[in-house]
């Protein structure tokens, strides 16, 4: 556990809590992008350069922007801000606390040391060649999925000319 890990961890937890607790949805998304950046920093620290940079590109560059657009497009006509938390928020919060305590207990009770061998960062060439050999089927499937998602998202969100109200 290094100082940099502690700093990043505090940043991630703080910004995530803000993202899930703030009132204004735009603020939520902006703090969320800090979380995404922090997670990318964690990946870089662990030697997974490619994944960290992909994380920034996909989440900060695409998902956060998409969420912001969606918020802009769905601003309610009756009053901007709806209630922040749902009626049965307490149940949800208790569930989350219970999940965290179970997970934390599981992590801490098992002394998984892990092997701290000399870590060689994974190179892009390595990722590329295994994508083309062992993981070629998942790669094709992901391509199919992304195409389907692209078309599906357009079809779902497209405004129909004759809206059957």
């Amino acid at each position: 556990m290094s100082i940099s890990f502690l700093i990043i961890a505090v940043l991630i937890v703080g910004s995530t809590a803000a993202a899930m607790g703030l009132r204004n949805p735009i603020h939520c998304v902006l703090t969320l992008s800090i979380t995404f950046g922090g997670i990318a920093a964690l990946f870089l620290q662990l030697g997974a350069e490619f994944v960290g940079l992909t994380q920034i590109m996909v989440y900060v560059g695409a998902v956060a922007i998409l969420a912001v657009f969606a918020i802009m497009m769905t601003q309610s006509r009756r009053g901007l801000m709806l209630g922040t938390f749902s009626r049965n928020a307490l149940v949800g919060l208790l569930t989350a606390v219970a999940v965290f305590s179970v997970l934390g207990w599981a992590v801490l009770s098992q002394p998984v040391a892990g092997v701290t061998a000399a870590v060689s960062p994974v190179s892009v060439q390595q990722i590329g060649s295994s994508l083309m050999h062992e993981y070629v089927l998942p790669l094709e499937l992901i391509g199919l999925l992304l195409t389907a998602a692209l078309i599906g998202a357009i079809v779902i969100a497209m405004e129909r000319k004759e809206d059957t109200e």
Binding site: I12, V13, T16, A17, A19, M20, G21, P25, C28, T35, A67, A70, I71, T74, L82, G83, T84, F85, S86, A89, V91, G92, L93, T95, A96, V97, V99, F100, L103, G104, V107
Partner: peptide, 19 residues
């Protein structure tokens, strides 16, 4: 796991569908 729990809490308690 802390991140997971915060995300779960958000998903269960927020009223805004996007959040």
């Amino acid at each position: 796991s802390l991140l997971f729990a915060i995300g779960l809490a958000g998903a269960l308690t927020r009223r805004n569908a996007i959040l």
